[in-house]
Design a protein around this nucleic acid. Structure first.
Length: 857
DNA sequence: ATAGGGTTAG
């Protein structure tokens, strides 16, 4: 059953609803969705409270016997004093009948223990239960005990009922266990009470005990136990109960069948649920609601909408739960039109006072991409709960308004609402997306203080936040202390290490993970960037094999990460082949391929890929321009580079960012336009960083422009006074101009300042092992052999016309060797090695974009 | 004279 023509179906649904709206009279809005529709239909709302003895709710014009209870009790009290022959038991019972617990208790306490009868105790306990007065109930219990009265079945049952109803489940259970019991009611009561607090194990445990004792359940028993088994998705148990239900003849009870349907849906047994519904002769509104919610929760939202339309066609009364369920389905398929119609219908039908209705409505607008609608609902709704706030926070996160989301979180707290696990998860997510490490830490403290850290999704969100903010130490602190980890925890950490350029850690964790559980498609997409970052081709191929065996290639994220891995390992042909095999390519995948051609110096191919992307109707975004401009720079495509840079704003309406300007500066330098580059940097609308100036400084060195170099260096030392790299660079410029005094000055500056030195390194994977080389590093076991090979190669290279730019030994005697080492290494392993500087930076950007997209989906 | 089935957020 497929939703073939959603538009026309939506229309027909709206037509029926509008007709239905015409016949609706507007009921007063009510605030308790629990009271169902009886409330609205009832001519006198107070009638519902008739049995609850809450005198203040009783309207004064009701039945006289329930009238002025104060007056009656006054009279009775007087009689008590004047006429001792009046039976105390009868009086207490009379008080109870009228709901006057205070006087009943007074009289009970004053009475001789021997005077009191079993029935009296029962009456008082009943009233205590109804008024939920645990204190009075306990007193009655102690009076019974001090009276030496045996707690038999009857009294025990009343005591259990009182304790459970007053919220003391533990006491109730203790008494229950102490008495012989075959009253199904009490079993049911305890089971449902355990279910209410979420203790399904205990609830279901009671059912098992019933079966052991041979106590037959009734319809209440089954509805309750099914809820318990469904909560933990125990399919086999549900089927067992199903058989039992049929055997005992409850197969035609709507409540029982409805709970069976719901239970099957919760276990993912869509077919079984469907069959039960089909065979159900007398479907009520709950049956239909169960079908809608069941389809929706199993990913068949369109089928859920179908059931709603059928329901409308058959004229089944729609209640607020129906609308809530359908709104969820609308949100899932993004049907804003129907969602709006449901909104209107709900308002007209008087459901708009219900918090649950409003919360779902808000979420529907948000998920359909309509933040304004969500905001409007939020502002207009009277009562808000933590769910409303969490939803509106998530709505802002969804639209990328992370700071607003964080602001709403603070506002919520200032209104006195205590955030729960869902609220903190949302705001932690907002912190992760906006790089708000300090705010994230603040929320983490709140989480620790309120013991929410034991919740796994919360911990996973925190780890993700720390990873996104670049603090893998803090992420790992949480991870290592988790008593139980799920696949999300592992994937988050692996992806975090990958993104933070710690590929060795990522790969190690990937190995550790496999000792405990099986990786999934997300794991693949998380670990592949690590292989890419290390150009770890062997490991990457291994994972490729795994992906093929598991069929994960159809996942776009996985496929994209795989292409990226081959790209970074230099296997462009293979990458292109895989790329061609992916049927629906998104912007990120195209960008990966463009960047791939760019980083390996195939500028023309990068441009043609960029053009193909546009022909395919995919709009380039910031990261696409970063990749294509970088490609132009590295292939010296001047004209093309400027054309693309200009088109960025004029055609695509994208404001260039720092990285785009950096590409253009690079392009100018490579074409020898140093002074134009200087002017370009000075007139940029964004504040340039040290890296951009640094690129120009390198350019000055290549073109021996000492004067400009000095000007540029001033800018750099202002921005990053502690980075030795730039001092060394300037020293090189001076040395090459034979300005030895200046060189010495810089040397003194470096040795005095205790400046940090970010040493470059390179590495190569041989048979799955990583060999890492720092400049001048001789710790490798085969260092001598490598050194002599490199010397030979350097000689060959020099003979072959390669000349490195170093003319003079600088800073210290070993430097020349270091530079030679590095240069030789770079040339030799150009295909498989990623430079620690610019190319891996670009790769990182692509990965980040990818992860961002993943989150959005 | 008590209890039950379907409903919102990550």
């Amino acid at each position: 059953m497929l939703f073939e023509d959603e538009e026309s179906k939506t229309e027909s649904a709206m037509l029926i609803m509008s007709k239905s709206i015409a016949t609706l009279t507007t009921y007063p809005t009510y605030h308790s969705h629990r009271n169902k529709s009886n409330y609205a239909k009832s001519p006198n709302c107070f009638i519902l409270f008739r049995q609850s003895w809450s005198t203040f709710l009783l309207p004064s014009n009701m039945d006289l016997s329930c009238g002025s209870s104060v007056g009656v009790s006054a009279t009775l009290s007087e009689t008590t004093h004047n006429n001792v022959t009046v039976d105390k038991n009868a009086k207490i019972c009379k008080f109870c009948e009228m709901g006057d617990l205070r006087n009943a208790m007074k009289l009970l306490s004053r009475s001789q223990r021997s005077e009191l009868e079993l029935n009296t105790y029962c009456s008082v306990l009943q009233l205590c239960a109804e008024l939920k007065s645990l204190e009075d109930g306990k007193r009655v219990h102690s009076i019974i005990s001090s009276n030496g009265m045996a707690i038999d079945e009857v009294l025990g049952a009343k005591l259990v009922f009182m304790y459970v109803n007053c919220g003391d489940l533990v006491k109730g259970r203790r008494i229950f266990d102490g008495i012989l019991n075959d009253k199904i009611f009490l079993w049911n009561l305890l089971m449902s009470e355990y279910a209410k607090i979420g203790n399904y194990r205990e609830s279901v445990g009671l059912f098992e005990k019933m079966q052991e004792l041979g106590i037959r359940g009734d319809s209440y028993t089954f509805t309750c136990v099914l809820k318990g088994f469904a909560a933990s998705a125990k399919v086999r148990e549900c089927k067992r109960v199903h058989g039992y239900v049929l055997k005992l003849g409850f197969g035609s009870y709507n409540a029982v069948v409805n709970s069976l349907i719901a239970a099957y849906f919760k276990c993912g047994e869509v077919e079984s649920a469907r069959i039960l519904f089909d065979e159900l002769s007398d479907r009520d509104v709950v049956s239909w609601n169960s079908m809608i919610s069941g389809c929706t929760m199993n990913g068949f939202s369109r089928n859920g909408l179908e059931f709603f339309i059928q329901m409308l066609n058959l004229g089944v009364d729609v209640d607020s739960a129906t609308l809530v369920n359908v709104l969820v389905a609308c949100a899932n398929v993004g049907n804003l039109t129907l969602g709006r119609a449901l909104h209107a219908y709900g308002v007209k039908a008087g459901f708009s006072g219900g918090v649950m209705f409003n919360n779902t409505l808000l979420d529907m607008y948000s998920k359909c991409g309509n933040l304004n609608g969500a905001n409007e609902v939020f502002v207009k709704m009277g009562e808000t709960t933590i769910v409303s706030w969490t939803s509106i926070i998530a709505a802002h996160v969804r639209e990328g308004l992370h700071y607003e989301a964080i602001g709403l979180f603070d506002e919520m707290q200032s209104k006195g609402l205590r955030p729960d696990i869902y609220a903190v998860t949302s705001v932690v997510h907002a912190c992760a997306c906006s790089n708000s490490l300090d705010k994230g830490r603040e929320v983490h403290n709140h989480i620790k203080k309120n013991n929410m850290g034991s919740n796994l999704p919360v911990s996973n969100a925190l780890m993700n936040m720390y990873a996104k903010c670049g603090s893998m130490e803090e992420a790992n602190l949480i991870f290592s202390q988790l008593p139980v980890k799920n696949i999300v925890s592992w994937n988050t950490m692996i992806g975090g290490y990958s993104q933070n350029s710690l590929p060795n850690e990522a790969l190690q964790l990937f190995l550790d993970m496999q000792k405990q559980l099986k990786p999934d498609d997300v794991t693949m997409a998380c670990v592949l960037p690590a292989c890419a970052g290390l150009a770890a081709l062997e490991k990457g191929r291994e994972i490729h094999g795994h992906i093929l065996r598991k069929g994960y290639f159809s996942d776009l994220h996985v496929a994209c990460a795989l292409v990226d891995m081959y790209v970074k390992c230099g296997l462009l042909v293979l990458a292109q082949q895989l790329f061609d095999m992916i049927p629906k390519k998104d912007m990120i995948l195209w960008t990966v391929m463009i960047a791939g051609y760019g980083m390996h110096g195939f500028g023309k191919e990068a441009i043609s890929t960029f053009e193909k992307m546009r022909v395919a109707g995919i709009e380039p975004e910031e990261s696409s321009f970063t990749s294509i401009l970088y490609a132009c720079t590295h292939s010296g495509l001047l004209k093309e580079g400027w054309k693309l840079f200009d088109s960025m704003k004029s055609e695509c309406n994208i404001e260039p960012k720092l990285e785009h300007y950096a590409c253009m500066v690079d392009l100018l330098i490579r074409s020898g336009n140093l002074s134009r580059a200087y002017k370009f940097i000075e007139t940029m609308p964004i504040k340039p960083d040290a890296a951009i100036w640094g690129a120009l400084l390198s350019g000055c060195r290549i073109h021996h422009d000492v004067e400009l170099a000095e000007k540029v260096a001033e800018h750099i030392f202002e921005l990053e006074p502690e980075n030795t790299r730039y001092y060394v660079l300037l020293a090189n410029v001076y040395a090459e101009a034979e300005k030895w005094e200046e060189v010495k000055k810089i040397q003194r500056r470096i040795s005095k300042g205790g400046l940090k030195n970010d040493q470059g390194c390179s590495w190569i994977e041989v048979q799955g092992k990583f060999n890492i080389f720092f400049a001048g590093d001789t710790s490798h076991p085969q260092a001598k052999m490598i050194d002599s090979l490199l010397r030979k190669l350097t000689m060959k290279m020099n003979r072959g016309g390669y000349s490195n730019k170093i003319k003079y030994a600088l800073i210290n005697a070993d430097d020349r060797l270091k530079e030679v080492l590095l240069c030789a290494h770079k040339e030799l392993f150009k295909k498989t090695m990623i430079e620690s500087s610019s190319s891996s930076e670009k790769g990182k950007n692509v990965t980040e974009e990818k992860n961002k997209a993943k989150k959005e989906i």
